[in-house]
Design a protein around this nucleic acid. Structure first.
Length: 862
RNA sequence: GCCCGGGUGGCGGAAUGGUAGACGCUGGAGACUUAAAAUCUCCUGGCCGCAAGGUCUUGCCGGUUCGAGUCCGGCCCCGGGCACCA
C-alpha cells in the first residue's frame, strides 16, 4: 500500500496517496450516516484564468485540517468544493476573444481543480458544483421565483451606476471611490430599468440575529453598520401656503425641534419643484442642473463647501408655529430617510456649517450641565428655549415630543435603515437569466388565473413609452432557462445586455402554462395559452449563485428540489465557514437574506446560514506588499509543491502566524518546516527505508517523553478546535525534538504522533503510518485521547521573586506547601542575599508557579 | 472625522495578571566528512562585566497591583472598514 521510498520523496508519495484516497472514496460524505455530522465549508472560489495563488490554499488548508480532525473524532464530515463561476472576467475575455464564456470557464475550472487536488485536500469531489451549470442555476432561478411571488422582487427605473467601460450597471458596493471595483474604470449615473430585491424588509431580522452567530466581532459590527438602524421620528412640517401640502422629515433628534431654523430638501425631492416660488425658480433650476452634473464622488466629497439654494417657500414648525424657510441642498440625500431634514444648526455639524455659510439663525436648545459648550453641540443635556419642554433631559424630551406630535397627527416614532434594497440585475451575458417574460396585462391576468400559486399579490409592472408591461414568471417546471448562443458578447450599448440581440430567444410565442417557447418570427401555435412575450434581458449578479450554494452541497445532484428535505435535515448548515474578510458585508449579508426567506418558506430549519465564521488573513508578498502580478511578488503554489511538496506548503502556510492575521510570505521559513518533516521521516525510517531500530513495541521510553506526548495530544486538539494552527505546529515540533532525543521510543508513541500530524501533513503521515504497520486510512483512525495523569510533572519549577523581581528558581514537587517553599527559597544563596537586612512584609505564594517576598528596605517603614 | 484591529529580538511569531522572547528562520562556533551538502551539538535582545552576576527591555507617558506585553487613562504610529445617513 505504501511506497517503497528510501528517503522522503514527496513527489512520489503525494500523488500516490492522493489517488489512493480518491479511489477508496474515504472522504465521501454519507448522507444519513449514524455518526454525528460535521459540515466544514470554504468560500468557494471564482475560477480565474490566473489560477491559484497562495492565499487560496491558506483557508483551504485550515478547513482541511479541521475536516480530517473531525473525521478522526468520529464525525461524518461534509467537506465540499465548487466554483462560483459566473463573473465579469470571463465575459470580458469573451468580448475580447469571441470565445464563449462557458468554454473559458470550463478551462479555468479544470486548472483550479488540478491545482487544488495537488494540495491533497480531502474534499468530497462527488459533490463538486458549478454555479454556471444549468442543473445548478435552475435552482438559483427557482429561488428567485420564490422571492418574486412573495413580493420581494420588483422592477424600478432608478439612477444606477453605469460604467461606460464595462458597459454595464454596477451595484453601489461595486463602486469604490467613484470607480468600478473591477478594473477601476470611471462610472456615472444613469436611469435604467432594474430588478431590485426587497432586502430592507429583512433589515430588522438581519440585524437582530447577528447576536446569535459566532462571528468575528469586526464583521458583525460591519454588518450592523451597513444595515445602519437608527431610531427617530418622522415629523410633518405644513407648508405656509394653504393647500400646498407638507414636508415630511426624518430626524433622530426630535428633542431639538425648537432649534429648527430651516428645512432642507434633497435636490431630487419631488416637492422641490412644486413649492419653489417663481422668483426662486431660475436659481433652483440652475442649482439642480449643477447638482445633477456632479458625480457622486464630487457630491460626497466632504472637503467641499456646503452649497444650496432657497426655494422661496416657508413651512411651519409644528411644535411652536415658527415660520422656517425651505432650502434645497445636496448635503441632504434623497436615498436616506425621507429626503428632507429639519435643520438644527446649534446641534448638528452639517447644519451649523450650512447656516453659517448662508447666515441662517442658530438657536441653542440643548445645554449640558456646567459650562456652555461651543456650537455646534451634538451631545446630550437639558432642554432650553423649548417652551413647555424646557428643563427636560434630551432623552425624555425625545419621547414626549414624539408622543405629542403623534397626538396632533404631525409625526410619529420611526426606525430608519441605511440599508437599501438590493440592485439585483446586470446588463451582461454571463449570468443567470431571469425566469421572467414581459407580457400584456390581459395575457398576464389569464396566466395568473391559470396558476395563481406562482404569482405575487401585486403584479410587477414597468411602463415605458406609455406602454405598461407585466412581469410573468415562468412555470418552475420550465426551468432552467438557459443562456442562448449569441453572435457577440458586446453589450447592446443601450443599457441592455447582449441577450437583447438574441432575437430568436428574446421575442417569443410563450406557452404560459408550460413555459414552452417559439421564436416570434414563427407562426403563432394553436391554443389560447400561447401568448406574445419578450424575455427579460437582464441577468443576475454574481452574488446570486453564492447566496445558497452551501445548501446545494448537501444534495448536489437533486433534480427535484434545490436539495432534499432529508439532506437538508442531515447536514443542516455549515458548522464552520472559512473565507476572506472582503466578503464581510456583501456575500454574507445577501446569503443571510436568502436564507431567511428560505426559512420563512419552511425549506430550512435554521434562522442563520453560518453559525460559525472565520476569516483567514491575507498572505502578502515577500516584500510585505499585497501580492500582484504587477509587483512581481506572486508565489505560485505549483512551484512550491514541485520543490518542497504539498505537505510542506500546507504546514508552512499554517505555521506563518495566526490564521486570521495578515502576514508576509518568507521563502526561507519554508525550509524550516520542510526540515521538520524530514526529521519526522528520519525518526521513523532508516536510510534504507526500514523501520528505525529505536522504535520498538516495548521500548523503555524516558518518562518525560510521555508527558510531552500527552501535552501535545491535548494542545493539538484544542488548537485545531480554536483554529490556532500555528501553535499546534510549534507543539508538534517540540514533540518531534523530544522523540529525536529519546534513545528509545515505543512504536505506538510514534504512531500517535503521526496521527496528530496527519491533518496537517496528510501524505507524509499516511505514508509513515503505513510503513510502521498502521492499518487503513490514518485520518479515519480514532483520534488519540490524552491522559491527564500523564500530564502531571514529577517536579515543577517554582520561580522565586523578591519584590516582583526574578531572584531564583526551585525544582519542587507539585503543590508544595507554602512553609516548605519559603524554607527552601530562603536556603538559596541568591535569595538569602536579597532578603538579608530587610523585613519581609508579605509573602505571595501561587503553588507551582511563583513565590514572591515583599520586603521593606532597612530603615523603611516598620 | 467616526468605528474596529494591531505595534514584542536581525525576521515570522509565542506567552490563563505570575521566569518576556516558546517554536521556527537568520547569523556564529564546533562535531561528522578528503571536502562540501545534509545532519547533530552549543550560542544568538541591548548595555556593564574576564566571570559570577548585574541592569535595562514588549510604540510613548502615566496609573492600578506583591507582580503588567496582558488591566485602566492619555498620546504617537501602522492596517482595515465607514463616511454629509439627519
Amino acid at each position: 500500500m505504501a511506497t517503497d521510498c528510501k528517503e522522503y520523496d514527496f513527489r512520489k508519495i503525494e500523488p500516490h496517496w492522493q489517488s489512493f484516497w480518491e479511489e477508496s472514496g474515504c472522504f465521501r460524505a454519507v448522507t444519513g450516516s449514524s455518526k454525528p455530522k460535521y459540515y466544514v465549508l470554504d468560500m468557494f472560489p471564482y475560477p480565474s484564468g490566473a489560477g491559484l495563488h497562495v492565499g487560496h490554499p491558506e483557508g483551504y488548508t485550515a478547513t482541511d485540517i479541521v475536516a480530517r480532525y473531525q473525521r478522526a473524532r468520529g464525525r461524518e464530515v461534509l467537506h465540499p468544493m465548487g466554483w462560483d463561476a459566473f463573473g465579469l472576467p470571463a465575459e470580458q475575455h469573451a468580448v475580447k476573444t469571441g470565445t464563449p464564456p462557458a468554454q473559458n470557464t470550463r478551462n479555468n475550472i479544470a486548472n483550479f481543480r488540478r491545482q487544488i487536488k495537488a494540495l491533497g485536500f480531502s474534499y468530497d469531489w462527488d459533490r463538486e458544483i458549478d454555479t454556471t451549470d444549468p442543473k445548478y442555476f435552475r435552482w438559483t432561478q427557482w429561488i428567485f421565483l420564490q422571492l418574486f411571488k412573495r413580493g420581494l422582487a420588483y422592477v424600478d427605473e432608478r439612477p444606477v451606476w453605469w460604467c461606460p467601460e464595462l458597459r454595464t450597471v454596477l451595484a453601489n458596493e461595486e463602486v469604490v471611490d467613484g470607480k468600478s471595483e473591477v478594473g477601476g474604470f470611471p462610472v456615472e449615473r444613469r436611469n435604467l430599468r432594474q430588478w431590485v430585491l426587497r432586502i430592507t424588509a429583512y433589515a430588522e431580522r438581519l440585524l437582530a440575529d447577528l447576536s446569535e452567530v459566532d462571528w468575528p466581532d469586526s464583521t458583525k459590527r460591519m454588518q450592523a453598520a451597513w444595515i445602519g438602524r437608527s431610531e427617530g421620528a418622522e415629523i410633518l412640517f405644513r407648508l405656509e401656503t394653504p393647500g400646498a401640502g407638507e414636508i415630511k422629515v426624518f430626524t433622530t433628534r426630535p428633542d431639538t425641534l425648537f432649534g429648527c431654523t430651516y428645512l432642507v430638501l434633497a435636490p431630487e425631492h419631488p416637492l422641490a419643484d412644486t413649492l419653489t416660488t417663481p422668483e426662486q425658480r431660475p436659481a433652483l433650476e440652475a442649482y439642480r442642473r449643477l447638482a445633477g452634473a456632479k458625480s457622486d464622488l464630487e457630491r460626497t466629497d466632504l472637503a467641499k463647501d456646503k452649497s444650496g439654494v432657497f426655494t422661496g417657500a416657508y413651512a411651519v414648525n409644528p411644535a411652536n408655529g415658527a415660520r422656517v424657510p425651505v432650502w434645497v441642498a445636496d448635503y441632504v440625500l434623497m436615498g436616506y430617510g425621507t429626503g428632507a431634514i429639519m435643520a438644527v444648526p446649534a446641534h448638528d455639524e452639517r447644519d451649523h456649517e450650512f447656516a453659517t455659510r448662508f447666515a441662517l439663525p442658530i438657536i441653542r436648545v440643548i445645554a449640558p450641565p456646567g459650562e456652555e459648550p461651543p456650537l455646534p453641540y451634538t451631545g446630550e443635556g437639558l432642554l432650553v428655549q423649548s417652551g413647555p419642554y424646557t428643563g427636560l433631559t434630551a432623552a425624555d424630551a425625545r419621547q414626549r415630543l414624539t408622543a405629542a406630535l403623534a397626538g396632533q397627527g404631525a409625526g410619529r416614532a420611526t426606525v430608519n435603515y441605511k440599508l437599501r434594497d438590493w440592485l439585483f440585475s446586470r446588463q451582461r451575458y454571463w449570468g443567470e437569466p431571469f425566469p421572467i417574460a414581459w407580457v400584456d396585462e390581459a395575457d398576464y391576468r389569464r396566466a395568473a388565473a391559470a396558476r395563481p400559486a406562482d404569482f405575487p399579490a401585486e403584479p410587477v409592472t414597468f411602463t415605458e413609452n406609455g406602454r405598461t408591461r407585466f412581469a410573468l414568471p415562468l412555470p418552475p417546471a420550465a426551468l432552467p432557462l438557459e443562456l442562448p448562443l449569441v453572435a457577440s458578447y458586446l453589450p447592446a450599448g443601450t443599457g441592455e445586455s447582449p441577450l437583447a440581440l438574441a432575437a430568436g430567444w428574446v421575442d417569443l410565442w410563450l406557452n404560459h402554462t408550460t413555459g414552452a417557447a417559439l421564436p416570434a418570427s414563427e407562426p403563432r401555435p394553436a391554443g389560447t395559452e400561447w401568448i406574445r412575450a419578450r424575455r427579460e434581458t437582464n441577468t443576475m449578479p454574481q452574488w446570486a449563485g453564492s447566496c445558497w450554494y452551501y445548501l446545494r452541497f448537501t444534495d448536489p445532484r437533486n433534480d427535484q428540489a434545490l436539495a432534499s428535505p432529508e439532506a437538508l435535515k442531515a447536514w443542516g448548515v455549515p458548522d464552520l465557514y472559512v473565507g476572506g474578510a472582503e466578503h464581510a458585508v456583501l456575500h454574507l449579508l445577501y446569503s443571510r437574506f436568502w436564507h431567511k426567506v428560505l426559512f420563512d418558506l419552511g425549506l430550512v430549519a435554521q434562522r442563520e446560514p453560518f453559525p460559525r465564521l472565520f476569516h483567514q488573513g491575507m498572505i502578502l508578498g515577500e516584500d510585505g506588499e499585497k501580492m500582484s502580478k504587477s509587483r512581481g511578488n506572486v508565489v505560485n503554489p505549483d512551484a512550491i509543491i514541485a520543490s518542497h511538496g504539498a505537505d510542506t506548503l500546507r504546514l508552512y502556510l499554517m505555521f506563518l502566524g495566526p490564521l486570521e492575521a495578515m502576514k508576509p510570505w518568507n521563502s526561507r521559513g519554508i525550509e524550516g518546516v520542510h526540515r521538520f518533516l524530514q526529521k519526522v521521516w528520519r525518526e521513523c525510517l532508516t536510510e534504507e527505508g526500514e523501520i528505525q531500530p529505536k522504535l520498538t513495541a516495548a521500548a523503555d521510553e524516558p518518562p518525560e517523553l510521555a508527558r510531552i506526548l500527552h501535552a501535545t495530544i491535548k494542545k493539538v486538539g484544542e488548537d485545531i478546535e480554536g483554529l490556532r494552527l500555528n501553535t499546534a505546529i510549534s507543539q508538534m515540533m517540540t514533540c518531534a525534538n523530544a522523540l529525536q532525543k529519546a534513545p528509545a521510543v515505543r512504536r505506538s508513541t510514534m504512531q500517535t504522533f503521526l496521527q496528530l500530524l496527519a491533518p496537517f501533513a496528510p501524505h507524509l503521515a499516511q505514508e509513515l503510518w503505513a510503513r510502521l504497520g498502521g492499518a487503513g486510512v490514518i485520518h479515519l483512525t480514532p483520534w488519540p485521547a490524552f491522559d491527564p495523569a500523564a500530564l502531571e510533572a514529577q517536579e515543577v519549577k517554582l520561580v522565586v521573586q523578591v519584590n516582583g523581581k526574578h531572584r531564583g528558581e526551585l525544582l519542587v514537587p507539585p503543590d508544595l506547601a507554602q512553609d516548605e517553599a519559603v524554607q527552601q527559597a530562603q536556603g538559596q544563596a541568591k535569595v538569602a542575599a536579597q532578603l538579608s537586612g530587610r523585613t519581609i512584609k508579605k509573602i505571595i505564594y501561587v503553588p507551582n508557579r511563583i513565590l514572591n517576598f515583599v520586603v521593606l528596605e532597612p530603615g523603611q517603614g516598620t
